Simulated assay, not measured.
Amino acid sequence: MRRTSFADMPCPIARSLDRVGEWWSILILRDAFAGMTRFEEFQESLGIAPNMLSRRLAALVEAGLLEKHPYSERPPRHEYRLTARGRDFRPVLLAMLAWGNRHFAPEGAAVQIVDARTGAPAEPVLMDRVTLRPIDGPDFTLAPGPAAGERTRRRFARPRQPAPEGKTP
Results as ranks from 00 to 15, higher is better:
residue 10 P to N: 02
residue 10 P to E: 10
residue 10 P to T: 01
residue 16 S to W: 00
residue 16 S to D: 09
residue 17 L to R: 09
residue 18 D to R: 05
residue 19 R to K: 14
residue 22 E to H: 11
residue 23 W to L: 12
residue 24 W to D: 13
residue 25 S to P: 03
residue 27 L to C: 08
residue 29 L to P: 05
residue 30 R to Y: 07
residue 34 A to E: 13
residue 39 F to Y: 13
residue 39 F to M: 04
residue 44 E to M: 09
residue 46 L to P: 01
residue 47 G to M: 11
residue 53 L to V: 09
residue 53 L to D: 10
residue 54 S to D: 12
residue 65 L to N: 06
residue 67 E to H: 03
residue 69 H to D: 05
residue 69 H to M: 07
residue 72 S to F: 03
residue 74 R to V: 15
residue 75 P to M: 09
residue 75 P to A: 07
residue 79 E to F: 03
residue 81 R to W: 11
residue 82 L to I: 03
residue 83 T to G: 08
residue 85 R to G: 02
residue 85 R to F: 00
residue 102 R to H: 10
residue 106 P to Q: 04
residue 106 P to H: 02
residue 108 G to C: 05
residue 110 A to F: 03
residue 110 A to E: 14
residue 111 V to G: 01
residue 114 V to T: 12
residue 120 A to R: 14
residue 121 P to L: 02
residue 121 P to K: 08
residue 121 P to I: 07
residue 122 A to S: 13
residue 124 P to A: 09
residue 127 M to G: 03
residue 128 D to P: 00
residue 133 R to S: 10
residue 135 I to R: 01
residue 139 D to P: 10
residue 139 D to N: 09
residue 139 D to Y: 06
residue 143 A to G: 11
residue 147 A to W: 10
residue 148 A to H: 09
residue 151 R to D: 15
residue 151 R to V: 14
residue 155 R to I: 12
residue 159 P to G: 04
residue 160 R to L: 12
residue 162 P to D: 04
residue 163 A to S: 12
residue 164 P to N: 11
residue 166 G to L: 07
residue 167 K to Y: 03
residue 167 K to Q: 12
residue 168 T to A: 04
